[in-house]
Simulated assay, not measured.
Amino acid sequence: MRELDTSLRDSFRQVSFQFRLMEIGPSPASKIEARIIGSDPQVLRDLATQVEDIFNADSGARNIRHDWRERTKDLLPQFNESQARRLGISKQDLADTLQMAFGGSAIGLFRDGTEMLPIVVRLPEEERVDFSTVQNLKLWSPALQTYVPIQQVVDDISLDWVEPLIQRQDRKRTLTVLADHDILGDETAASLFGRLRPQVEAIDLPVGYSIEWGGEYESSNDAQEALFSSLPMGYLFMFIITVFLFNSIRQPIVIWLTVPLAVIGVAIGLLATNSAFSFTALLGVLSLSGMVLKNGIVLMDQINIETHSGKDPYQAVVDSAISRVRPVSMAALTTILGMMPLVFDAFFGSMAVTIMFGLGFATVLTLVIVPVLYALFYRIKPSEA
């Protein structure tokens, strides 16, 4: 890809090309998409030019383009309505004649075995490529019952720029400026988007025009919105279960306070492996919270057993932490080893790194932070002896 990136830029300077890594899951047209919404095509193109200038000014942006592409030239006949009515000729008659002469009109189908081939009538090629042929075209006049020259209903033919492709979203004209990050570099699309977004949103938009963001940003937000819509209720039920389990409020709070601290291990793992915090990594964090809770529940239950056996509270906490070292560590180790094959997977790699490093650090949290928090909440201190 590096060789192609260099050779294509040198050999084909006006060609638009794009490199993409294999992806599993939603894959938008480009990682960064700025949708400009409005009514006037010329204003949309002017705003798109400003957005493209911002993208081009950033050295990390690649494959900058928009989905309306370039304008094309069309020959537009100026139809004389009053004269055409006198001759009994409509705009459709003129359009059909021009289509037949230069594009071709289907007049039937030819069956060749199981295939249906259209029968098209049109002028010979040497006449189609020469637009002066239009001067010799004639239209049938129902009023005069004869053919009349096309000049009788066409005052003039002008050459003008037109939009060959107009994209719409929600029935509104939408021009999308697209860009990608350098997939051969170390920068992610999210970091590039973070730099470009404030500059684009600072553009002074006319009344009735707006900018929306698509690409990876939209896909990620849609996925997270679907996920987080039910997440609070799930965590609420988990907390209620832990309250019923211990018949207490303080003990579940001690366990739950260790869950956010697992993010420290996650951050270290992602930085050490140069992995992105993708959607699968987010799923890994959610899974990790359940594992941390499980380890905390096991230790808390052991503390209660030791305390109810008649031990000194301080000694009960210490003995519980020591006795849980082996089962908690072995459970974490087996999970980490089970995740190792996924580390090199293109889709689940970030999730595996998140769970491995987060769970390894969470083991330390369970054996150290939970006893400390328990002692603080219940004001347990060493005995004088």
Rank of each mutant, 00 (worst) to 15 (best):
S219E: 13
A179S: 08
V162S: 15
V343I: 12
L139I: 05
R20K: 11
L47G: 07
L178N: 03
P313M: 05
Q92N: 12
I369K: 08
I64G: 01
R171T: 13
G113E: 07
A57S: 15
S16T: 10
F55G: 00
F102S: 05
F55C: 03
M330D: 06
G358V: 08
S219Y: 04
V328W: 00
I107W: 09
L367V: 09
V370F: 08
G60C: 06
F277E: 03
Q78K: 11
D180L: 08
Q78C: 06
V254T: 11
Q169E: 15
D10G: 11
N295L: 01
F228M: 10
R168K: 14
V129F: 07
E216P: 06
T335S: 12
S105C: 10
I303V: 12
P206V: 07
L373S: 05
S30F: 01
L184G: 10
A281W: 04
R85G: 03
F348R: 06
I119L: 15
M238G: 13
I336M: 11
V207C: 07
L192A: 08
L44V: 04
I54R: 02
Y378L: 08
V318P: 02
G25K: 02
N80T: 11
A202D: 13
V292P: 03
Q169F: 13
G215N: 00
S191C: 04
D93P: 06
W161T: 04
E212M: 13
M356P: 05
G349P: 01
L373D: 01
G185D: 08
V162M: 12
Y209A: 00
S275D: 13
V259L: 11
E384T: 12
D53M: 09
M339I: 04
R128G: 05
E52Q: 15
L342E: 03
S210N: 12
G214H: 02
Q50S: 14
N247D: 13
D112I: 09
F12G: 08
L205F: 06
V200S: 09
S309W: 08
D160V: 15
S11G: 12
L8Y: 14
L376Y: 06
S16I: 10
G194P: 01
E23F: 06
Y378W: 10
V328N: 00
S220C: 01
D345Y: 03
I305C: 05
R69C: 02
L109P: 00
L299A: 10
A331V: 07
M356D: 07
G214L: 01
E33W: 09
A226H: 14
S11T: 15
A346C: 02
M351C: 07
P313T: 06
L288N: 05
T72I: 15
T174G: 00
M340Y: 06
N295I: 01
L205H: 04
Y314H: 13
S350H: 04
L337A: 11
P341D: 03
E201H: 15
V254L: 04
F246T: 01
A276Q: 15
S350C: 05
G269H: 07
L94Q: 04
I268Q: 08
F102Y: 13
I336N: 00
S82C: 06
P77H: 05
